[in-house]
Nucleic acid binder design. Sequence first.
RNA 1: GGGCCCGUAGCUCAGCGGUUAGAGCAGCGGACUUUUAAUCCGUCGGUCCAGGGUUCGAAUCCCUGCGGGCCUACCA
Length: 501
Amino acid sequence: MPSERELFDQRLSKRAQLLESSDPYPARVERTHTAAEAVQAFLDAGEVDEQVAVTVVGRVTAQRVMGKAAFLDLRDQSGRIQLHFRRDRLEDFDRIDLVDLGDFLEVSGTLFRTRTGEVTVAVAKWRIVTKALRPLPDKFHGLTDTEARYRQRYLDLIANERSREVAFTRSRVVSAIRRFFLDRGFLEVETPVLQDNAGGAAARPFLTHHNALDRDLAMRISLELHLKRLLVGGFEKVFEIGRVFRNEGISYRHNPEFTLLESYEAYADYEDVARMVEDLLGAVALEVLGGTDLTHGEHTVSLQAPFARTTYHRALLDHTGIDFYQYRSVDALSEVARERGVRTEAGASWGTVLDALMSEFVEPKLIQPTFIFDYPTEISPLAKRKVDDPSVVERFELFALGYEIANAYSELNDPVDQRDRMMEQASKKAEGDEEAEIADEDFLVAIEHGMPPAGGLGIGVDRVVQLMTGEHSLREVILFPTMRERQAERHELSDEDDGAS
RNA sequence: GGGCCCGUAGCUCAGCGGUUAGAGCAGCGGACUUUUAAUCCGUCGGUCCAGGGUUCGAAUCCCUGCGGGCCUACCA
């Protein structure tokens, strides 16, 4: 019955038939072994047929029915195990007609090895524990339609081993990061997602509204300003792994919500943080991959410390021949940028033009992990100035495979300088720069009470997962990436009568 | 945002101006008690993304829209 409607109705009617004698959705199921454990138990018991009894549960992924016998494949999270049903052993053998691919079964029996060598459950007792109403993707070709893979990730996870692997790797990356910080004595905290003002990064926020308070709120774009308040409060090492939201374009490198790690350590500076980042990435790679080398297409990247280091000024000079100290005005700088084919927008600031040059000529070349130190003050309003050159700050970014992995500074804790720089950002914002930093008065008041010298760090966790998995698109490492709204869903089949047909 | 490509059965795909749009898998009926992409016979199944246009004739060509992918630009 090929139309979606017919397939659905057919399964509904099987469900109704099951209901006559049993519950196709029981709350309680038995399980003595996972699929993998069952096979192992058979091996451990000396591979004697029909000796080891197991009860396994899982989803039916293949059926090979032969009149008086049937083989079904049952899959659980641990793997797959084959089931053998025989008419001469089962009074309810014919009920396998009510089983469809995708149903969940609870099966008890003993283990044996088939003629072709596969460890198999000789089924003595079985029942359907979840009746599925919609068909699964093609058992052989799987699900390849990228849109369907993202919109219906559960189908992707059923059909594609790789998608499961990436999800597992992501989980391991996050727990490795968390363990790294906890082991170093950092306190894990959670700070507000809903805020008066979204600050701490150059990005546009999502805006929302609290009805009871009749108050507009913004969703956070970074974790920074609240974590620093905790430094004021006396915590010396804090970190947060949390979702942030940026109201910007969507691409294979950008999702409107992504996971950011930020850490702050009192009495450390950015040099200390750089060493910590080397340790962190090495530790994560070791735990997730078992080594510090990883291959990405034609590139082999080594996360073995120490990473290459250069400065913003040096890197730009090396890759473009531009010595930005020679071009102190926006106009002069824009002119050389234009000569090199970098178009700059009308209201672009000096720092923005520099950043455009870096993005164009330097960052794509940074395949091996490379620290870029000492950023222009103008594009780093929350970082502490270098003592010997106030036009640059103690800030580094770490690049690998051509994209930014980490961003860190010696945190600006002079409240007067901070206020001045926030006001400068605020006036840019007033002039129409939507990504300029806001002046957060509450934050300024906080640091006016004294924030200890500290090294801060931000890492895009999704990017680290990309690095570790070798996935090209961010959407492959985010289980449910943001998608455009889909109109005219044609999936609403269930509001017909649910028994009959 | 710009450029290129894609959208046909539940899934994977063919058909690219000419009868009534096809195949494999899945489904349904039948045969088959150790199969594993089971096999064999039969069979059901389509808003060819949507709307408009060109044409004697459109899944096929053109336009618009919707959705997606890749590349590119900003951010992490």
